[in-house]
Design a protein around this nucleic acid. Structure first.
Length: 365
RNA sequence: GGGCCUCUAGCUCAAUCGGCAGAGCAGCGGACUUUUAAUCCGCGGGUUGCGGGUUCGAUUCCCGCGGGGCCCA
C-alpha cells in the first residue's frame, strides 16, 4: 500500500510511521502547517504544529528514510477550526477544536488530497483500534485505556475510516516511547501535547478577548439576583467554578458553579453543584462510523475525552438525537461532543445542543 | 446635636442561651488532561477596630474612644 503518514513532530506519529515502514508499505511523511505564523502556536512540548514541531517531524522522517513534505493547510484550519471555535464561544457554547480538526482537517482535507495523489490510506499516531464487520471498518477503543483517543475520532465516517490506519491502537504509551528510543528517534522523550494548539500561551480567555472584545455582563443566581459582574460570557463553560470572583458567599456557604450562559443578554447564571446534574441531552450534527442508526436503542455514551462511559437510551429525532442518561451527569456543556459506544466500538457522535437539568426534570414529575 | 446599626482571614460574610474562631472568593501547591482561564485534592495562629470592665471563660454582655452607614433635628 502507498501510505501517507501524518507526522505532527511528536513521538506517537513518528512511531506510527515507522511501523508502517516495517509493515512493508511505501510510506511518505507529511507534516501539516496549520498556521501562517507557526510562532503563534504552542511550541515544542505543548503543541503539534509549531515550526519546531515540523523540524522534529522532518528529522524523524529522515531517520526512517522516507520522503517528507509539509502541507500548508492553514487557510482551511483558520476557516474550519479557529473561526468555528470563536463563533461557538460567542454563541455561549463550549467547542472542542481537536475534534473539529480531526473532522475537517486531518481526516478530511488531508485524506482527500492524499487519495487524489494516489495514496491508499493515511496513518496517524492516534490511539484507537480499527476492526472489520463484514464490509465495514469499525472504530474501537485503544488497548491502553489511559491513552484511548477513540472519543476524538468519533466524528469520522465510514469512508474516512476506510482510508485510515492507526498503528498504535494495540500498544501501551510507555512501550511506544521505548520503541521510539530503540529506533533512535530524537522525539522519544518529548512530552505529550495537550491544550489548544493554536493558543500559544495557553490563555484561552485572552485569545477569545482579542477576537470577541470585552463583553461585560451580569452574574446572576437562579432567582435572577445580581451577584457580580463578568468581562465576557466566553470566559466560562458549564460547570466552571473558578474565576467567578463573586465576593458574597452563598447562603449555605457552598461553592457556586456556572449553570447557564446566555450571550444574548450577556448573563451567566450560577448555582450549587447539585443543580449541574443533567439527565437528558440533545444532539445535532450526528455522524455514524457505519450505517446511520434510527429508532431507539441502549448504548454507552461519553461526553468528554477521558470521561467514563455512561449507560443511556438513545432516540433519533429527525436529523438529531436525544440521550436519556441512566444516571445524572455533571458539567455537560452545549458544543461538546457526545460519542456513542457499543461496548468498545464507536457507533457515532453528535454535538450537544441542549441539556435537561435532572433537578428540573424531577420537579416536573 | 440626638437616635439606631456596623467594624471577624487579602476580599465578602458565618459563629446556636458567653464555652477550643469558620465558609465562599482570591492566592499558592498537587492530581488529572490532545476540548473548556474545566474539574478534583491540599494549604487559613487571624492582637475578632482600639482601650477598659463583668466573668472560671468575651467575637458574643457593659462602658468609653475611633472608622463606616442609616434616620431625626
Amino acid at each position: 500500500m502507498r501510505v501517507l503518514a501524518a507526522m505532527s513532530g511528536g513521538v506517537d506519529s513518528a512511531v506510527a510511521a515507522a511501523r508502517m515502514v516495517d509493515a512493508g508499505h511505501e510510506v511518505t511523511g507529511v507534516h501539516l502547517a496549520l498556521s501562517k505564523n507557526p510562532q503563534s502556536f504552542r511550541s515544542g512540548a505543548r503543541g503539534c504544529c509549531s515550526r519546531e514541531d515540523s523540524h522534529d517531524a522532518r528529522r524523524a522522517a529522515d531517520r526512517l528514510g522516507i520522503p517528507f513534505y509539509v502541507w500548508d493547510l492553514s487557510d482551511r484550519f483558520v476557516e474550519d477550526v479557529i473561526e468555528d471555535f470563536v463563533s461557538e464561544y460567542a454563541a455561549g457554547r463550549t467547542p472542542n477544536p481537536c475534534l473539529r480538526c480531526n473532522e475537517k482537517i486531518k481526516f478530511a482535507a488531508v485524506l482527500e488530497r492524499g487519495v487524489a495523489l494516489g495514496f491508499d490510506g493515511v496513518a496517524t499516531g492516534h490511539y484507537a483500534m480499527l476492526g472489520r464487520d463484514g464490509d465495514h471498518v469499525t472504530l474501537n477503543r485503544a488497548v491502553d485505556p489511559g491513552k484511548d483517543q477513540s472519543y476524538v475520532l468519533g466524528v469520522l465516517y465510514q469512508q474516512q475510516l476506510a482510508h485510515s490506519l492507526f498503528p498504535l491502537g494495540d500498544s501501551l504509551k510507555s512501550d511506544v516511547r521505548l520503541e521510539a528510543a530503540e529506533r533512535g528517534l530524537t522525539v522519544a522523550l518529548k512530552p505529550d501535547s495537550h491544550d489548544i494548539c493554536f493558543i500559544a500561551d495557553g490563555d484561552t480567555a485572552g485569545f477569545l478577548d482579542r477576537h470577541l472584545g470585552s463583553q461585560p455582563g451580569a452574574i446572576l443566581d437562579e432567582g435572577g439576583n445580581r451577584l457580580g459582574e463578568h468581562a465576557g460570557s466566553h470566559h466560562f463553560t458549564i460547570g466552571q467554578r473558578k474565576g467567578l470572583k463573586i465576593a458574597a458567599p452563598a447562603a449555605d456557604g457552598k461553592p457556586r458553579y456556572v449553570l447557564d450562559i446566555s450571550p444574548v443578554d450577556k448573563t451567566v447564571t450560577v448555582g450549587p453543584r447539585e443543580h449541574l446534574a443533567v439527565s437528558r441531552l440533545e444532539g445535532i450534527r450526528c455522524s455514524w462510523t457505519q450505517a446511520e442508526l434510527l429508532g431507539e436503542w441502549s448504548a454507552l455514551v461519553q461526553v468528554r475525552a477521558h470521561g467514563a462511559p455512561m449507560p443511556a437510551t438513545i432516540t433519533r429525532t429527525g436529523t438529531g438525537l436525544v440521550v436519556e442518561l441512566a444516571e445524572p451527569a455533571h458539567g455537560i456543556a452545549s458544543g461538546q461532543a457526545v460519542v456513542i459506544y457499543d461496548g468498545e466500538r464507536v457507533v457515532g457522535a453528535a454535538t450537544i445542543s441542549a441539556t435537561t437539568s435532572a433537578v428540573a426534570a424531577q420537579l416536573a414529575g
